[in-house]
Simulated assay, not measured.
Amino acid sequence: MDKTLILRAVSEVGELLGLEGDTLATAESCTGGLLSSTLTDVSGSSQWFQGGVVAYANEVKRDLLGVPEDVLDAHGAVSEEVVKIMAQGVQKAIGANVSVAVSGVAGPTGGTPDKPVGTVWMAWCINGTVVRTKLNQFEGSRDEVKEQTVMHAVNGLMAILR
């Protein structure tokens, strides 16, 4: 991940959020907090970043973010249905009005024929409404999948805020 490039993108997200007085929350699974860490690498992020939930275990997705057990059972943690609820749930839990949620298989283990390593679902939400979802298929090492996820999550924030 090009650190200069991602920090420039995060700075732009911060400016866009600041224009409207918006605040941001994250719900992360496969990135394990890397997205929140990257957001807070930019000075002044405390003006617009409220916080994040690392919902690595399904129990956290269920109990803290409100993902119903039947949705997890029917679709799995790495699914459009789950990231949509995660994005909405983290807004409620933290009190932000903009959110992004990510859930995927970073590897090198854990992949299946239906959801191979590098499969990552993302959802972006504004004021409780999911405005965009995206399925990505990244390649590379575990770190590379996590870094690509962060970059795409930030780029998605720029897209929905512009």
Rank of each mutant, 00 (worst) to 15 (best):
T109D: 07
V71G: 02
V150M: 00
S11Q: 11
T133Y: 04
Q88K: 12
Q148P: 02
V98D: 09
G110W: 00
I94P: 13
I85Q: 01
Q137V: 09
G95E: 04
V67R: 01
M151K: 14
V54Q: 08
G140A: 07
L35G: 13
S141L: 07
D22L: 09
T112W: 01
V102A: 11
G111V: 00
C30M: 06
I6Q: 01
G44H: 14
L24C: 11
S45T: 08
V13N: 06
A153R: 02
L7S: 15
V120Q: 00
V83A: 05
V145L: 01
N127V: 08
R8G: 12
S99F: 14
I126H: 05
S11H: 06
I85R: 03
D2T: 07
F138G: 04
K61T: 04
G111N: 06
A25M: 05
E81R: 05
E139M: 14
R62A: 15
T4D: 14
V82E: 00
Q88G: 08
G51S: 08
L24S: 02
Q91T: 09
E69I: 10
A123C: 08
T4R: 15
V53Q: 01
V90I: 09
I160N: 11
M122Y: 02
S11R: 14
V145E: 03
P113F: 04
V105F: 02
K134E: 02
P116A: 07
T40I: 13
